[in-house]
Design a protein around this nucleic acid. Structure first.
Lengths: 209, 209
DNA sequence: AACTTGTTGCGCAATTACATA
DNA sequence: ATATGTAATTGCGCAACAAGT
Protein backbone atom coordinates (compact mmCIF):
# COMPACT_ATOMS: atom_id res chain seq x y z
CA UNK A 1 0.00 0.00 0.00
CA UNK A 2 1.48 2.87 0.02
CA UNK A 3 3.99 3.97 -1.77
CA UNK A 4 5.72 6.21 -0.36
CA UNK A 5 8.53 7.64 0.06
CA UNK A 6 11.06 8.25 -1.90
CA UNK A 7 13.71 10.33 -2.11
CA UNK A 8 17.09 9.78 -1.64
CA UNK A 9 18.41 11.04 1.11
CA UNK A 10 21.62 10.43 2.01
CA UNK A 11 23.57 11.62 4.43
CA UNK A 12 26.74 12.58 5.26
CA UNK A 13 27.86 10.08 7.19
CA UNK A 14 30.97 10.58 8.51
CA UNK A 15 31.24 13.87 8.24
CA UNK A 16 31.03 15.02 11.38
CA UNK A 17 32.37 17.91 12.07
CA UNK A 18 34.63 18.64 9.55
CA UNK A 19 33.61 21.82 8.22
CA UNK A 20 34.60 20.90 4.93
CA UNK A 21 31.66 19.07 4.13
CA UNK A 22 31.24 21.06 1.20
CA UNK A 23 33.40 18.77 -0.55
CA UNK A 24 30.66 16.47 -0.88
CA UNK A 25 29.80 15.49 -4.16
CA UNK A 26 26.90 17.60 -4.48
CA UNK A 27 23.59 16.28 -4.68
CA UNK A 28 22.56 14.95 -7.81
CA UNK A 29 19.04 15.05 -6.98
CA UNK A 30 17.00 14.13 -9.83
CA UNK A 31 13.70 14.69 -8.47
CA UNK A 32 12.51 18.04 -8.81
CA UNK A 33 9.13 17.97 -7.49
CA UNK A 34 8.81 18.28 -3.92
CA UNK A 35 5.22 17.92 -3.42
CA UNK A 36 4.06 15.23 -1.28
CA UNK A 37 3.27 11.96 -2.44
CA UNK A 38 0.09 11.40 -4.03
CA UNK A 39 0.70 8.10 -3.18
CA UNK A 40 -0.41 5.44 -4.86
CA UNK A 41 -2.93 3.40 -4.68
CA UNK A 42 -2.24 0.13 -5.45
CA UNK A 43 -1.03 -1.79 -2.94
CA UNK A 44 -1.45 -5.19 -4.00
CA UNK A 45 0.40 -6.09 -6.96
CA UNK A 46 3.91 -6.29 -6.07
CA UNK A 47 6.66 -6.79 -8.48
CA UNK A 48 7.74 -10.32 -9.10
CA UNK A 49 9.55 -10.47 -5.91
CA UNK A 50 12.56 -8.95 -7.26
CA UNK A 51 12.12 -5.86 -9.12
CA UNK A 52 15.12 -4.48 -10.48
CA UNK A 53 15.87 -1.04 -9.77
CA UNK A 54 17.13 0.08 -6.45
CA UNK A 55 18.94 2.81 -7.96
CA UNK A 56 19.32 4.77 -4.90
CA UNK A 57 17.63 5.43 -1.75
CA UNK A 58 15.00 7.83 -1.06
CA UNK A 59 13.88 10.13 1.54
CA UNK A 60 13.45 9.53 5.13
CA UNK A 61 10.51 7.60 5.76
CA UNK A 62 7.02 8.62 5.44
CA UNK A 63 5.12 5.59 4.68
CA UNK A 64 1.91 4.61 6.10
CA UNK A 65 2.59 1.75 8.09
CA UNK A 66 2.85 -1.74 7.02
CA UNK A 67 2.57 -2.02 3.34
CA UNK A 68 5.48 -0.06 2.44
CA UNK A 69 5.25 0.41 -1.14
CA UNK A 70 8.29 2.27 -1.91
CA UNK A 71 9.80 1.89 -5.31
CA UNK A 72 7.12 3.87 -6.76
CA UNK A 73 9.46 6.37 -7.94
CA UNK A 74 11.56 4.08 -9.76
CA UNK A 75 8.62 2.60 -11.38
CA UNK A 76 7.65 6.01 -12.31
CA UNK A 77 11.01 6.68 -13.58
CA UNK A 78 12.14 8.69 -10.72
CA UNK A 79 15.77 8.78 -10.22
CA UNK A 80 17.41 8.64 -7.01
CA UNK A 81 20.44 10.13 -5.70
CA UNK A 82 23.30 8.16 -4.57
CA UNK A 83 24.00 10.15 -1.67
CA UNK A 84 23.97 13.78 -1.43
CA UNK A 85 26.13 16.20 0.15
CA UNK A 86 26.51 16.96 3.67
CA UNK A 87 25.65 20.19 4.94
CA UNK A 88 22.59 19.57 6.84
CA UNK A 89 23.94 18.54 10.12
CA UNK A 90 24.96 21.02 12.65
CA UNK A 91 28.57 21.21 12.99
CA UNK A 92 29.12 20.61 16.60
CA UNK A 93 28.36 17.06 16.77
CA UNK A 94 28.74 14.53 14.23
CA UNK A 95 25.56 13.54 12.86
CA UNK A 96 25.83 9.95 13.14
CA UNK A 97 25.12 9.25 9.71
CA UNK A 98 23.07 10.96 7.35
CA UNK A 99 20.64 13.51 8.04
CA UNK A 100 17.51 12.88 6.32
CA UNK A 101 16.64 16.36 6.37
CA UNK A 102 13.18 17.22 5.81
CA UNK A 103 12.60 18.11 2.35
CA UNK A 104 15.17 18.78 -0.20
CA UNK A 105 16.82 21.66 1.27
CA UNK A 106 18.34 23.95 -1.19
CA UNK A 107 19.61 25.97 1.59
CA UNK A 108 23.04 25.10 0.65
CA UNK A 109 22.51 26.93 -2.51
CA UNK A 110 20.40 29.69 -1.26
CA UNK A 111 21.69 30.55 2.09
CA UNK A 112 25.06 31.10 3.43
CA UNK A 113 25.50 28.81 6.31
CA UNK A 114 24.74 30.98 9.25
CA UNK A 115 25.97 28.65 11.83
CA UNK A 116 23.54 30.00 14.26
CA UNK A 117 20.61 29.32 12.08
CA UNK A 118 21.59 25.82 11.44
CA UNK A 119 22.17 25.36 15.04
CA UNK A 120 18.76 26.54 15.85
CA UNK A 121 16.90 24.48 13.40
CA UNK A 122 18.80 21.43 14.25
CA UNK A 123 18.52 22.09 17.87
CA UNK A 124 15.04 22.40 19.04
CA UNK A 125 15.50 23.51 22.51
CA UNK A 126 19.00 22.73 23.31
CA UNK A 127 19.58 19.23 22.23
CA UNK A 128 23.19 19.21 21.52
CA UNK A 129 24.50 15.91 20.49
CA UNK A 130 27.13 16.13 23.06
CA UNK A 131 24.72 16.56 25.92
CA UNK A 132 23.83 13.91 28.40
CA UNK A 133 20.25 14.67 27.67
CA UNK A 134 20.84 13.74 24.09
CA UNK A 135 22.54 10.52 25.00
CA UNK A 136 19.70 9.59 27.28
CA UNK A 137 17.21 10.21 24.59
CA UNK A 138 19.19 8.23 22.12
CA UNK A 139 19.62 5.37 24.48
CA UNK A 140 15.95 5.28 25.26
CA UNK A 141 15.12 5.35 21.61
CA UNK A 142 17.55 2.59 20.91
CA UNK A 143 15.82 0.47 23.47
CA UNK A 144 12.47 1.32 21.99
CA UNK A 145 13.75 0.41 18.59
CA UNK A 146 15.00 -2.93 19.73
CA UNK A 147 11.75 -3.62 21.41
CA UNK A 148 9.75 -2.60 18.42
CA UNK A 149 11.80 -4.73 16.09
CA UNK A 150 11.51 -7.68 18.33
CA UNK A 151 7.83 -7.26 18.31
CA UNK A 152 7.81 -7.05 14.55
CA UNK A 153 9.88 -10.18 14.33
CA UNK A 154 7.53 -11.99 16.61
CA UNK A 155 4.59 -10.83 14.61
CA UNK A 156 6.13 -12.01 11.41
CA UNK A 157 7.05 -15.31 12.88
CA UNK A 158 3.57 -15.71 14.23
CA UNK A 159 2.03 -14.94 10.90
CA UNK A 160 4.20 -17.52 9.27
CA UNK A 161 3.24 -20.09 11.80
CA UNK A 162 -0.35 -19.23 11.38
CA UNK A 163 -0.08 -19.63 7.65
CA UNK A 164 1.47 -23.03 8.11
CA UNK A 165 -1.16 -24.06 10.59
CA UNK A 166 -3.92 -22.90 8.36
CA UNK A 167 -2.41 -24.75 5.48
CA UNK A 168 -2.37 -27.84 7.55
CA UNK A 169 -5.86 -27.38 8.75
CA UNK A 170 -6.91 -26.84 5.21
CA UNK A 171 -5.49 -30.10 4.24
CA UNK A 172 -7.28 -31.86 7.01
CA UNK A 173 -10.53 -30.25 6.12
CA UNK A 174 -10.11 -31.27 2.54
CA UNK A 175 -9.60 -34.85 3.56
CA UNK A 176 -12.62 -34.68 5.73
CA UNK A 177 -14.63 -33.39 2.83
CA UNK A 178 -13.40 -36.22 0.74
CA UNK A 179 -14.49 -38.72 3.30
CA UNK A 180 -17.88 -37.15 3.71
CA UNK A 181 -18.40 -36.98 -0.01
CA UNK A 182 -17.59 -40.59 -0.27
CA UNK A 183 -19.95 -41.40 2.52
CA UNK A 184 -22.71 -39.49 0.84
CA UNK A 185 -22.15 -41.41 -2.33
CA UNK A 186 -22.23 -44.67 -0.52
CA UNK A 187 -25.38 -43.81 1.34
CA UNK A 188 -27.02 -42.72 -1.84
CA UNK A 189 -26.08 -45.96 -3.38
CA UNK A 190 -27.54 -47.95 -0.51
CA UNK A 191 -30.62 -45.91 -0.65
CA UNK A 192 -31.17 -46.59 -4.27
CA UNK A 193 -30.63 -50.25 -3.56
CA UNK A 194 -33.13 -50.16 -0.81
CA UNK A 195 -35.49 -48.49 -3.11
CA UNK A 196 -35.17 -51.28 -5.59
CA UNK A 197 -35.57 -53.87 -2.91
CA UNK A 198 -38.76 -52.33 -1.74
CA UNK A 199 -40.02 -52.22 -5.27
CA UNK A 200 -39.18 -55.79 -5.87
CA UNK A 201 -40.85 -56.81 -2.73
CA UNK A 202 -43.89 -54.94 -3.70
CA UNK A 203 -43.96 -56.79 -6.94
CA UNK A 204 -43.43 -60.09 -5.28
CA UNK A 205 -46.13 -59.33 -2.77
CA UNK A 206 -48.59 -58.63 -5.49
CA UNK A 207 -47.60 -61.82 -7.19
CA UNK A 208 -48.00 -63.85 -4.14
CA UNK A 209 -51.38 -62.65 -3.17
CA UNK B 1 3.23 13.62 -9.76
CA UNK B 2 4.09 12.22 -7.44
CA UNK B 3 5.50 10.70 -5.11
CA UNK B 4 8.39 11.68 -4.53
CA UNK B 5 10.66 13.25 -3.04
CA UNK B 6 11.20 14.56 -0.15
CA UNK B 7 13.74 14.36 1.89
CA UNK B 8 16.53 16.08 1.95
CA UNK B 9 19.07 14.09 2.16
CA UNK B 10 22.22 15.01 2.27
CA UNK B 11 25.14 13.40 2.32
CA UNK B 12 28.56 13.89 2.25
CA UNK B 13 29.97 11.29 0.78
CA UNK B 14 33.39 11.23 1.12
CA UNK B 15 33.85 12.77 4.24
CA UNK B 16 36.70 12.04 5.20
CA UNK B 17 38.94 12.00 7.54
CA UNK B 18 38.69 13.95 10.55
CA UNK B 19 40.58 12.31 13.17
CA UNK B 20 38.70 13.23 16.13
CA UNK B 21 36.51 10.47 16.98
CA UNK B 22 37.18 10.72 20.53
CA UNK B 23 34.66 13.29 21.11
CA UNK B 24 31.89 10.91 21.42
CA UNK B 25 30.10 11.24 24.60
CA UNK B 26 31.11 8.11 26.10
CA UNK B 27 28.63 5.82 27.26
CA UNK B 28 26.42 6.61 30.02
CA UNK B 29 24.93 3.35 30.30
CA UNK B 30 22.17 3.52 32.75
CA UNK B 31 21.75 0.05 33.47
CA UNK B 32 23.88 -1.12 36.08
CA UNK B 33 23.27 -4.69 36.08
CA UNK B 34 24.78 -6.20 33.23
CA UNK B 35 23.85 -9.68 33.57
CA UNK B 36 21.25 -10.71 31.33
CA UNK B 37 18.00 -12.06 32.12
CA UNK B 38 18.02 -15.72 32.40
CA UNK B 39 15.66 -15.62 29.78
CA UNK B 40 13.92 -18.32 28.41
CA UNK B 41 15.16 -20.60 26.20
CA UNK B 42 13.74 -21.54 23.18
CA UNK B 43 12.68 -20.46 20.15
CA UNK B 44 9.14 -21.29 20.12
CA UNK B 45 7.43 -19.92 22.96
CA UNK B 46 7.78 -16.36 22.63
CA UNK B 47 7.14 -14.01 25.35
CA UNK B 48 3.69 -12.56 25.44
CA UNK B 49 4.44 -10.28 22.65
CA UNK B 50 6.11 -7.84 24.78
CA UNK B 51 8.81 -9.12 26.86
CA UNK B 52 10.39 -6.70 28.99
CA UNK B 53 14.00 -6.43 28.92
CA UNK B 54 15.71 -4.68 26.10
CA UNK B 55 18.30 -3.57 28.39
CA UNK B 56 20.94 -2.88 25.97
CA UNK B 57 22.21 -4.03 22.76
CA UNK B 58 24.60 -6.76 22.21
CA UNK B 59 27.37 -7.61 19.94
CA UNK B 60 27.30 -7.41 16.26
CA UNK B 61 25.25 -9.93 14.75
CA UNK B 62 25.91 -13.49 14.18
CA UNK B 63 22.67 -15.21 14.20
CA UNK B 64 21.74 -18.11 12.10
CA UNK B 65 19.17 -17.07 9.78
CA UNK B 66 15.56 -16.70 10.34
CA UNK B 67 14.73 -17.47 13.85
CA UNK B 68 16.76 -14.73 15.00
CA UNK B 69 17.49 -15.68 18.42
CA UNK B 70 19.24 -12.62 19.45
CA UNK B 71 19.26 -11.89 23.06
CA UNK B 72 21.35 -14.90 23.36
CA UNK B 73 24.00 -13.00 24.97
CA UNK B 74 21.69 -11.65 27.49
CA UNK B 75 20.45 -15.06 28.08
CA UNK B 76 23.92 -16.12 28.64
CA UNK B 77 24.49 -13.38 30.98
CA UNK B 78 26.48 -11.35 28.64
CA UNK B 79 26.33 -7.80 29.48
CA UNK B 80 26.01 -5.33 26.89
CA UNK B 81 27.48 -2.08 26.47
CA UNK B 82 25.33 0.77 25.53
CA UNK B 83 27.56 1.69 22.85
CA UNK B 84 31.10 1.17 22.86
CA UNK B 85 33.43 3.88 22.65
CA UNK B 86 34.91 4.83 19.49
CA UNK B 87 37.99 2.97 19.70
CA UNK B 88 37.25 0.23 17.36
CA UNK B 89 37.33 2.17 14.29
CA UNK B 90 40.55 3.09 12.89
CA UNK B 91 41.37 6.48 13.81
CA UNK B 92 41.61 8.03 10.51
CA UNK B 93 38.04 8.03 9.79
CA UNK B 94 35.44 8.33 12.27
CA UNK B 95 33.26 5.44 12.44
CA UNK B 96 29.97 6.67 11.40
CA UNK B 97 28.21 5.81 14.46
CA UNK B 98 28.78 3.38 17.02
CA UNK B 99 31.02 0.61 16.54
CA UNK B 100 29.40 -2.60 17.25
CA UNK B 101 32.50 -4.11 18.16
CA UNK B 102 32.62 -7.72 17.81
CA UNK B 103 32.36 -9.23 21.08
CA UNK B 104 32.77 -7.23 24.05
CA UNK B 105 36.09 -5.85 23.35
CA UNK B 106 37.99 -5.03 26.38
CA UNK B 107 40.76 -3.91 24.23
CA UNK B 108 40.25 -0.45 25.35
CA UNK B 109 41.12 -1.55 28.78
CA UNK B 110 43.75 -4.03 28.00
CA UNK B 111 45.65 -2.69 25.11
CA UNK B 112 47.09 0.60 24.39
CA UNK B 113 45.76 1.60 21.06
CA UNK B 114 48.51 0.68 18.70
CA UNK B 115 47.21 2.59 15.81
CA UNK B 116 48.87 0.35 13.40
CA UNK B 117 47.29 -2.75 14.76
CA UNK B 118 43.87 -1.28 14.72
CA UNK B 119 44.47 -0.11 11.28
CA UNK B 120 45.34 -3.52 10.13
CA UNK B 121 42.45 -5.33 11.62
CA UNK B 122 40.01 -2.78 10.47
CA UNK B 123 41.57 -2.52 7.14
CA UNK B 124 41.81 -5.73 5.35
CA UNK B 125 43.70 -4.84 2.34
CA UNK B 126 43.59 -1.15 2.15
CA UNK B 127 40.06 -0.20 2.62
CA UNK B 128 40.32 3.20 3.99
CA UNK B 129 37.07 4.82 4.64
CA UNK B 130 38.13 7.76 2.71
CA UNK B 131 38.84 5.86 -0.45
CA UNK B 132 36.65 5.87 -3.45
CA UNK B 133 36.82 2.15 -3.36
CA UNK B 134 35.27 2.22 0.06
CA UNK B 135 32.50 4.54 -1.04
CA UNK B 136 31.74 2.36 -3.97
CA UNK B 137 31.53 -0.67 -1.81
CA UNK B 138 29.30 1.11 0.65
CA UNK B 139 27.06 2.41 -2.03
CA UNK B 140 26.71 -1.01 -3.57
CA UNK B 141 25.93 -2.49 -0.24
CA UNK B 142 23.41 0.18 0.48
CA UNK B 143 21.63 -0.69 -2.70
CA UNK B 144 21.76 -4.35 -1.88
CA UNK B 145 20.38 -3.63 1.54
CA UNK B 146 17.50 -1.69 0.14
CA UNK B 147 16.78 -4.43 -2.28
CA UNK B 148 16.95 -7.08 0.36
CA UNK B 149 14.65 -5.19 2.65
CA UNK B 150 12.19 -4.65 -0.10
CA UNK B 151 12.19 -8.30 -0.75
CA UNK B 152 11.66 -9.02 2.89
CA UNK B 153 8.79 -6.60 3.02
CA UNK B 154 7.21 -8.21 0.02
CA UNK B 155 7.66 -11.61 1.53
CA UNK B 156 6.02 -10.55 4.72
CA UNK B 157 3.18 -8.97 2.92
CA UNK B 158 2.73 -12.06 0.85
CA UNK B 159 2.69 -14.26 3.89
CA UNK B 160 0.04 -12.12 5.43
CA UNK B 161 -2.06 -12.31 2.36
CA UNK B 162 -1.63 -16.00 2.21
CA UNK B 163 -2.70 -16.36 5.78
CA UNK B 164 -5.82 -14.39 5.06
CA UNK B 165 -6.56 -16.42 1.98
CA UNK B 166 -6.08 -19.65 3.82
CA UNK B 167 -8.31 -18.44 6.57
CA UNK B 168 -10.94 -17.72 4.03
CA UNK B 169 -10.57 -20.99 2.32
CA UNK B 170 -10.77 -22.65 5.66
CA UNK B 171 -14.03 -21.06 6.33
CA UNK B 172 -15.41 -22.21 3.05
CA UNK B 173 -14.26 -25.72 3.61
CA UNK B 174 -15.85 -25.75 7.00
CA UNK B 175 -19.14 -24.70 5.56
CA UNK B 176 -18.86 -27.37 2.95
CA UNK B 177 -18.23 -29.91 5.64
CA UNK B 178 -21.27 -28.73 7.46
CA UNK B 179 -23.39 -29.19 4.41
CA UNK B 180 -22.05 -32.62 3.70
CA UNK B 181 -22.50 -33.70 7.27
CA UNK B 182 -26.05 -32.61 7.14
CA UNK B 183 -26.57 -34.48 3.93
CA UNK B 184 -25.12 -37.60 5.43
CA UNK B 185 -27.46 -37.32 8.35
CA UNK B 186 -30.40 -36.89 6.10
CA UNK B 187 -29.48 -39.82 3.97
CA UNK B 188 -28.97 -41.98 6.99
CA UNK B 189 -32.35 -41.03 8.19
CA UNK B 190 -33.95 -41.94 4.91
CA UNK B 191 -32.11 -45.14 4.85
CA UNK B 192 -33.33 -46.17 8.24
CA UNK B 193 -36.82 -45.31 7.18
CA UNK B 194 -36.44 -47.44 4.13
CA UNK B 195 -35.18 -50.18 6.28
CA UNK B 196 -38.26 -50.06 8.41
CA UNK B 197 -40.49 -49.99 5.39
CA UNK B 198 -38.86 -53.07 4.02
CA UNK B 199 -39.26 -54.81 7.30
CA UNK B 200 -42.89 -53.92 7.58
CA UNK B 201 -43.51 -55.11 4.11
CA UNK B 202 -41.81 -58.36 4.91
CA UNK B 203 -44.09 -58.81 7.86
CA UNK B 204 -47.11 -57.92 5.88
CA UNK B 205 -46.10 -60.30 3.19
CA UNK B 206 -45.79 -63.13 5.62
CA UNK B 207 -49.12 -62.23 7.04
CA UNK B 208 -50.79 -62.23 3.73
CA UNK B 209 -49.59 -65.57 2.57
C1' DA C 1 1.94 22.24 24.25
C1' DA C 2 5.63 19.33 25.75
C1' DC C 3 7.37 14.93 26.43
C1' DT C 4 7.77 9.85 25.91
C1' DT C 5 7.29 5.73 23.40
C1' DG C 6 6.61 3.26 19.02
C1' DT C 7 7.74 2.82 14.05
C1' DT C 8 10.27 2.96 10.13
C1' DG C 9 13.73 4.03 6.38
C1' DC C 10 18.54 4.62 6.11
C1' DG C 11 23.41 3.63 6.17
C1' DC C 12 27.11 0.98 8.49
C1' DA C 13 29.59 -3.18 9.41
C1' DA C 14 29.84 -8.09 10.26
C1' DT C 15 28.46 -12.31 8.23
C1' DT C 16 26.96 -15.45 5.03
C1' DA C 17 25.79 -17.20 0.47
C1' DC C 18 27.33 -17.54 -4.18
C1' DA C 19 30.07 -17.21 -8.02
C1' DT C 20 34.35 -17.25 -10.31
C1' DA C 21 39.17 -17.32 -11.02
C1' DA D 1 39.19 -28.24 -3.43
C1' DT D 2 40.63 -23.09 -2.61
C1' DA D 3 41.22 -18.30 -2.47
C1' DT D 4 38.84 -14.20 -3.59
C1' DG D 5 35.22 -10.96 -4.74
C1' DT D 6 30.43 -9.54 -4.92
C1' DA D 7 25.65 -9.79 -3.55
C1' DA D 8 22.47 -10.81 0.22
C1' DT D 9 21.29 -10.74 5.10
C1' DT D 10 20.92 -8.97 9.44
C1' DG D 11 21.56 -6.39 13.95
C1' DC D 12 22.48 -1.83 15.29
C1' DG D 13 22.06 3.06 16.06
C1' DC D 14 20.33 7.46 14.11
C1' DA D 15 16.78 10.68 12.92
C1' DA D 16 12.18 11.81 11.47
C1' DC D 17 7.71 11.03 12.51
C1' DA D 18 3.49 9.09 14.34
C1' DA D 19 1.07 7.85 18.63
C1' DG D 20 0.10 8.11 23.06
C1' DT D 21 0.18 10.74 27.76
Amino acid sequence: MSISDSPPSTSCIFTPQNPACTSSVSTLSLNSDSTGPPLNAMANQMPPMDGGFYGQSMGPQGLPKFPDPRNMEQMMGMGYLPFSSCLTSTNTEQAGQQGHTAQQDFSQFLLPPPAVTLRQSGQKRGIRKDSIEYRLRRERNNIAVRKSRDKARRRIHLTQQRALQLQDENHRLQLHIQRLSHEVDTLKHYLSQRHLQVKEQDMRGEDNC
